[in-house]
Every structure is written in C-alpha cells, then in structure tokens.
C-alpha cells in the first residue's frame, strides 16, 4: 500500500509539472501598427500554436465576454469617447483588467472574449479587428481613417527647469520623434527640428504617469542617453491620473498622459499618437466590426456572437 502510494505521489507530481505547460503562450514579434517592424525585443519567437479551436469550429451562439480596462485608464477614456458611450455605461458585467498584458492574456485564453489595447501592444496571439474595413496601420492612424486613436501627451506645470527643458526638447526633436515612429507610433510633431542640447543641464528629473506611454518613454530616455544627454531621467508609472496630479504637486517634472489632458493648469505637448486596437481571440472568425456594433457590445445590448455583423 505504502509503495503504491509513493509511486502514485511521484506520478502525480510529474504529471502536474508537465501539464503545467498546457495553454501555449505566444511571443509577440511584430506589431500590427504599420509596416514598420518595431524592434523585436524578444530573443525567441515561440511557435504560435494555440490550443483553442481553429476558426472553423467557433460556435457563434455563445455569449460575448466583454473585457475592459479599469475606470480611469486613459486607454479606456479614449475608447469610450470614440465609440460614443459614457464611461459608466460600459455593461456592468464586463470583466476588468488594469494593464495590456492581462488583457492580452485574458483574450488569448478565452475564445469568446473581446477587448481593446494600445495598438503598440498587440501580439500575434490575438486578432486585431479592422474597423469598418480600416486596419490599425500607421498610415491609417496618421490619416485619421482609423478612428480609434488617442494622443500620448506629456505635461509640465508651467515652467521647466533647465534639466527638464533639455529632455523636453529632445523628445520633441527630430531625433526624439524618430524614436516615436520607430516604435510604431505616429509622430506628434511633424517636421520636428533637430535637437539642440543644453550641455550645462546635468541634474536629474523624474518623469511619470501613464503606463501606456511608459514603454515609449523608456526608449526615448535610452535614446537621449545614447545621443549624449547629460540629465539623469528617472521613469515612474502610476497611470494617467497620477501623471497629472503628481506633475501638479511637483513629484514629477514631466508627466505622461495617454488621453486629453483635463487639468487646466498644466501645459501639454502631444508627443505621439497611438491607435487603439480591438482584439478578439484567434479562434473567432470575426475580422471586421462596425463602431455601432462595438458600441452595442460594450453597452451590453449585443450579447451573442451571432448577432454581430
């Protein structure tokens, strides 16, 4: 009996450990935003194998699982505004996640899910829908044809010290905007001038706020250093709201806000434009959606997949 149990235990443990790998995770390689291949961060591209059914097997009589960002997210704010519903009108039964990674994970795992994330964060583990025929490419976003987009703003509280000014100049310079475009976003400033460095600026500043802008800002800081910048820039997160409030109270010299800036006392500059992609599971045969349907889904009026389109 004891020996049997020992073997059973060992087998159980082994099975558990092996099956710990059940649903495959997919490594994102390219973004859907335009033809530019954003630098591939990941050293390996895993096989894009999914365990969910191929589109052919999708049962469209299933209910739609609506997933949204949290109340206060700049991404959410922009999204609801563009599809034309009130922030609080999102159906109460929608699941909530507070970052792009969790949203991707949730949509990957569930074939009836739908959600929205920054176009720069889309991985090839999910399908990004076209909106009324328009795909979220850089050209479409730039031209405005792809309607669901929002600005990445940076703010300061009226006056910049020399250090902050130097960095600010950089990100709005041709060099800075080149980084923006290189990451797959749309430049906020067309025909930006070359950067004129203030070499006497050698202090340190803190930049913080929107988590959506953060990845871009990280690159900008690195590019700044690589270009010979002498100011030490520390990056923090916290969200668009914190980006505003902490800039007002001085904790941040520069704040990041991924929507329209609401605080009147702040000066803002549009750093980049970002598209918001609507994503569904790969098993879902849907490839295109209308703004009207999107609105109804998020209002809770459309609840079953076969009602869409």
């Amino acid at each position: 009996m004891k020996k049997l149990l020992k073997i059973a235990l060992a087998m159980g443990l082994m099975t558990a450990m092996i099956s710990g790998c059940v649903p495959e995770d997919n490594t994102p390689s390219t973004t859907t935003q335009g033809g530019t291949t954003a630098a591939n961060d990941d050293t390996k591209a895993a096989d894009a194998t999914t365990t969910t059914a191929t589109p052919g097997n999708f049962d469209d009589s299933q209910a739609i699982l609506v997933i949204t960002r949290e109340d206060g997210s700049g991404t959410r704010g922009a999204f609801v505004e563009i599809i034309g519903i009130g922030n609080d009108e999102i159906v109460a039964t929608a699941e909530v996640r507070n970052n792009a990674g969790d949203i991707l994970g949730a949509v990957e795992q569930n074939d009836v899910a739908i959600s929205y994330i920054s176009a720069g964060s889309v991985s090839n583990a999910v399908t990004a829908l076209t909106i009324e025929g328009i795909a979220p490419t850089t050209d479409n976003i730039r031209s405005g044809a792809y309607a669901i987009q929002r600005p990445f703003n940076v703010v300061h509280n009226g006056s910049l010290n020399a250090d902050a000014q130097d960095f600010w100049n950089f990100i709005f310079s041709a060099e800075g905007q080149a980084v923006v475009v290189g990451r797959g976003y749309i430049e906020g400033v067309m025909n930006a001038p070359a950067w004129e460095q203030d070499t006497s600026a050698t202090g340190s500043i803190t930049v913080g706020g929107s988590t959506s802008v953060q990845p871009l800002m990280e690159r900008l800081i690195e590019a700044y250093v690589a270009a010979g910048g002498t100011v030490t820039v520390e990056l923090q997160g916290g969200g668009s709201g914190v980006g505003e409030s902490s800039t007002v109270d001085g904790t941040f010299e520069i704040g990041m806000v991924s929507r329209e800036v609401r605080v009147a006392t702040l000066t803002s500059g549009e750093l980049a434009i970002d598209g918001i992609a609507v994503i569904v599971n790969k098993a879902n045969p849907l490839t295109d959606i209308s703004i009207e349907d999107l609105k109804d889904i998020y209002l809770g009026d459309l609840t079953i997949w076969n009602q869409v389109g």
Partner: peptide, 29 residues
C-alpha cells in the same frame, strides 16, 4: 494522504508552470 497529495500536486503545477514557461526563455543576455 489525499491532503498531502493535493498539496504536492498543486505545488507541482505551479512550479511546473513556471519552469516550463520560463526556462526556454532564459538567456545570458
């Protein structure tokens, strides 16, 4: 014994998940 088995299995799952997912992505970089 069942309790011990459940514990071991649950923990095995968690660790197995971490290892299977993480080890292939390890690199010197």
């Amino acid at each position: 014994w069942i309790a011990a088995f459940i514990t071991i299995t649950a923990m095995g799952f968690v660790i197995g998940y971490i290892l299977v997912r993480g080890v292939p992505s390890l690199s010197l970089d």
